[in-house]
Design a protein around this nucleic acid. Structure first.
Length: 425
RNA sequence: GCGGAUGUAGCUCAAUGGCAGAGCAUCACACUGUGGCUGUGAGGGUUGUGGGUUCGAAACCCAUCAUCCGCCCCA
C-alpha cells in the first residue's frame, strides 16, 4: 500500500459513478447556455505564464498556479482561469466576429491551493460570457442563464439564490460617505469579510483601515439597506428584465456582494446554496470593462460568470438531486449457454446492435447464474437465453429482469419483444 | 504558508499495554437451464511508513508520508 503511486494531490479521479455526475452537470450546463443561443468554445489548457502575469499579478500566478519550465526553456502554466484566454482570442478576431458574442465553455482548470471541502486543485469550470454590449439587460440575460441552470437541476429558489449588487452603486455610496477612491479596495475586502468576522472585531478592523466612526456607521447602514437598489437605474432596469425573463424569484439584491475590485465595474452577482453545509459560492460573475486592454484589442465591455463543478456537485448530492447511477449503458445481456452455442450468442448480439440496441455478451462461457448476477449488478433490464432447445427450434428466451417474467419468442420477433419490454420498464 | 483531526481486511469501523475482530462486499456451496431473498462455509492483515519505550505495542513517544476539516487566498 505504501508503494502504490498515488494520484497527484488535489486531482480528481472520475470512476463511472462520478463521471455520470460530471456528465449530468455538463448536459444541464449545455442546455441552459444553448437555450439562450450561446456557442460552445474552448482555449488551450496550457498557456505562457505571461498571459496571467500581466493581469493577475506575478505573485498570485507563482503561488497559486501550476507553472513549470518546458523542454524549450519557456515557462508555461496550467490555466487557472479562462478570461485571459478569452480576451486574447476575442482580440485576435475582433474585426471579424459577429457581436454580441455569446460564448460558453466547460473544461479543466488547475490552481495550486490547499484542498478542502468544495475545493480541489483540479476542477472543471463553466464559463459564460457575452461581449460587445454594455447594458443592464445583457447582465440580466447572464443571470437568467445561471438561474435557468439552477432550475434545471432541481434547485428551487428556496434552496439556491443569486445575490446581486452593482459596483457603480457602491462607489457612489462610498463617495457620499467621503471614503476616498484609494480606500475602495480595502473597503471591498472589509465588506467581503463581514460575515466571517465577529461584529466587534470587524468594527475594529474598519477603524484600523482609517475609517472614522461616522463612515463606519454609514457603511453599516448601507450594508443593511436592502432597498438600496432603488437608487440605481441600472439595478432597477436589471430587476425589471429579470422579471420579464421569468427568473426574478431566484434573484435578490444584496449590498454585501462585492467580488473584489479587480475587473468588475458594474453588476456583480453570486449564487449560494441557502440550506446546505457549504458556504461557498456556486457561481459568480459580473460586468467588466476594458477586458481587451492588456492584450491589445479595442475597448470592449462584457458580462460573464463562472461555476466550478465541485461545489455544485456536492450540493446536488447532498440535496438528493443527483440522478440515479445506471452502471451499464447496455440494457440487454445475451447470455452464453455453453461453449458450443457461444458464437450464436455473439451473432444474435451483433444483429441487435445493428438494430440500434446496446447489448452485452459474456466474454467467457461461465455458468448461467453468474451471468444473471452480473446483469443484476449492472442493473440491466433484459437477459436473452439461447439454449439447445431454443436453437433447435429457432427461438430465444426473452427475460424481463425487472419483474422476472420470461417468454420464448421466435428469433425474428426478438427485437420487437425487447422493445416492448423496454417500453414498459 | 499556518492550525486541528484521522490513518487497522476491498469498504465502514471495533479492539484503551496481553491471542487483530465485526458488519457489508467478494468467492464457493445449498441451486449442473435463470439474478434479486435466505442459509452454510471460505478467502482476505507487515494495524500508512521508519525508529524508540516495554517482558510484551494497533494502542505510549519521536519522525515522516497521506487523507480530511478549517485559516490564508480564491484571478
Amino acid at each position: 500500500m505504501a508503494n502504490k503511486i498515488q494520484a497527484v494531490k488535489g486531482t480528481r479521479e472520475f470512476y463511472p459513478e462520478q463521471m455520470a455526475l460530471r456528465n449530468f452537470i455538463y448536459n444541464k450546463i449545455r442546455s441552459a447556455a444553448q437555450a439562450f443561443g450561446y456557442q460552445e468554445w474552448d482555449a488551450p489548457f496550457i498557456e505562457t505564464i505571461d498571459l496571467y502575469a500581466a493581469k493577475s499579478g506575478e505573485e498570485l500566478v507563482k503561488k497559486q498556479s501550476f507553472t513549470f519550465e518546458d523542454r524549450g526553456g519557456d515557462f508555461v502554466t496550467l490555466r487557472p482561469e479562462l478570461t485571459p484566454s478569452l480576451a486574447r482570442m476575442i482580440a485576435a478576431k475582433q474585426g471579424e466576429l459577429t457581436f454580441p458574442v455569446r460564448w460558453w465553455s466547460f473544461g479543466p482548470f488547475w490552481r495550486y491551493e490547499q484542498p478542502q471541502k468544495g475545493r480541489t486543485r483540479e476542477f472543471f469550470q463553466w464559463n459564460v460570457d457575452m461581449l460587445g454590449v454594455n447594458s443592464p439587460e445583457a447582465d440580466a440575460e447572464l443571470i437568467a442563464v445561471g438561474a435557468t441552470f439552477l432550475r434545471s437541476v432541481g434547485l428551487s429558489p428556496e434552496r439556491a439564490l443569486i445575490y446581486v449588487n452593482n459596483r457603480r452603486l457602491m462607489d457612489s455610496e462610498f463617495d457620499a460617505l467621503g471614503i476616498p477612491a484609494e480606500k475602495r479596495l480595502d473597503v471591498s475586502n472589509l465588506v467581503d469579510r463581514r460575515t466571517k468576522m465577529e461584529p466587534a472585531k470587524w468594527d475594529t478592523y474598519a477603524l484600523d483601515l482609517g475609517l472614522n466612526q461616522a463612515q463606519l456607521d454609514g457603511l453599516k447602514s448601507i450594508l443593511g439597506n436592502y432597498e438600496l437598489w432603488k437608487n440605481s437605474d441600472e439595478l432597477v432596469r436589471l430587476f425589471a428584465t429579470l422579471e420579464a425573463l421569468g427568473v426574478k424569484e431566484y434573484v435578490k439584491f444584496d449590498p454585501n456582494i462585492m467580488r473584489g475590485l479587480l475587473y468588475y465595474t458594474g453588476t456583480v452577482f453570486e449564487a449560494f446554496d441557502t440550506s446546505g453545509s457549504l458556504k461557498r459560492a456556486i457561481f459568480g460573475g459580473g460586468r467588466y470593462d476594458n477586458l481587451l486592454a492588456d492584450v491589445g484589442g479595442q475597448p470592449l465591455s462584457g458580462v460573464g460568470f463562472a461555476m466550478g463543478d465541485v461545489v455544485i456537485g456536492i450540493i446536488l448530492q447532498e440535496a438528493g438531486l443527483a440522478p440515479e447511477f445506471i452502471p451499464s449503458p447496455a440494457q440487454v445481456l445475451v447470455t452464453v449457454f455453453d461453449e458450443k452455442l457461444w458464437m450464436q450468442s455473439f451473432a444474435l448480439a451483433a444483429e441487435l446492435r445493428a438494430a440500434g440496441l446496446n447489448v452485452m455478451v459474456s466474454p467467457e462461457p461461465t455458468k448461467l447464474p453468474k451471468q444473471f448476477k452480473f446483469a443484476d449488478k449492472m442493473k440491466m433490464k433484459i437477459a436473452l437465453v439461447l439454449g439447445p432447445d431454443e436453437v433447435e427450434k429457432g427461438l430465444v428466451v426473452v427475460k424481463n429482469l425487472v419483474n422476472g417474467e420470461q417468454a420464448q419468442v421466435k428469433k425474428e420477433a426478438v427485437l420487437d419483444s425487447i422493445k416492448s419490454v423496454l417500453k414498459n420498464a
